[in-house]
Design a protein around this nucleic acid. Structure first.
Length: 280
DNA sequence: CTGCGGTCCTGAAGGC
DNA sequence: TGCCTTCAGGACCGCA
């Protein structure tokens, strides 16, 4: 699922390809996933590609925006030539490498013959024409405003299990299931710990661990695990899945060599992976 | 404020 | 083989 590192990778690649381009037309194949009238986009130019949390905000030359949330299985695939769009990598949840494919929901064409496909198996992802950027009101964990002080205040003002808090986009933006699990493992904190039980040192370690895994995720261009749809706009898989410590490692030995076995539990309906031996 | 369960959606995987 | 159930999960909503 795209979390901050995946969405940031998508943003960077998309920005390289589409800045300055003029929209020729937009085809909406799945109406429930598109908000606004796609016809009004014709003739507008791409000025900027920004991101807040997991939401991409594309600024147009008239000051309006296209907001995109990829949710669980959304993909954006850029094609220099839309009439012969083929992506070489195996793309999860698609029957073919030819675009459009059966999960293609929206197609954006540029005047120069290029464009991008918005694919999404589960139809949770959306695109929206808007007068303003969209995104959680909290602080993006990549922002300089995401300080240790902010993190400490957020953590100590809650009693929820720490993992639930990390994934709460209204408290801090960008962390999803993968990076929450990985950060807690690095900091040696159990996902079940109540936030107000963490001491100053643990909070600091966790803060550093979050920054570390997010940077790592971006460095490896996101994670494309076996059952994930994530792929970059240029059709490449991420590499972060090769560096997972505990995520999807149930039953395996703790990578710290402590002798523990990675355990899987359910929290808030989602899987948590951790080493019960060295995370407490 | 917090938590819980249902909802959206589709395809893969497991059980019998 | 084949049908049926379960699972996957980000965000949101209604309700306790």
């Amino acid at each position: 699922m795209p979390e901050l590192p995946e969405v940031e990778t998508i943003r960077l690649e998309l920005q390289d390809e589409i800045i300055g381009k003029e929209i020729k037309s937009v085809d909406v194949l799945s109406k429930k996933q598109f908000f606004g009238n796609p016809k009004t986009l014709t003739g507008k130019k791409i000025k900027k590609v920004d991101r807040t949390g997991k939401i991409i905000n594309i600024l147009l030359n008239d000051g309006t925006f296209i907001n995109i949330h990829l949710k669980l299985t959304g993909q954006i695939l850029f094609a220099p030539d839309m009439s012969h769009a083929v992506f070489k990598n195996i793309i999860p949840f698609t029957a073919t490498n030819q675009m459009p494919c059966k999960t293609t929901r929206i197609i954006v064409y540029f005047k120069d013959g290029s464009g991008f496909f918005f694919n999404d198996l589960r139809k949770f992802a959306w695109m929206k024409i808007n007068t303003h950027p969209e995104g959680p009101k909290s602080i993006d964990v990549l922002s300089p405003d995401f300080t240790l002080d902010y993190f400490q205040k957020t953590v100590t003002s809650s009693k929820r299990p720490i993992k639930i808090l990390l994934m709460d986009q209204e408290k801090m933006a960008g962390i999803g299931n993968i990076y929450a699990n990985e950060a807690l493992f690095i900091a040696r904190i159990s996902p079940e710990r109540r936030t107000n039980s963490l001491n100053e040192n643990e909070i600091k370690n966790l803060y550093e661990a979050i920054k570390q895994v997010i940077r790592e995720g971006i460095k490896y261009k996101g994670s494309s695990a076996a059952d994930e749809a994530y792929i970059t706009p240029k059709g490449k898989k991420g590499e972060m899945q090769n560096h997972f410590r505990v995520y999807q490692k149930e039953g395996q030995k703790c990578p710290k060599g402590c002798g523990g076995i990675v355990k899987r539990i359910k929290q808030g309906g989602r899987s948590s992976f951790f080493c019960p031996n060295c995370q407490s």
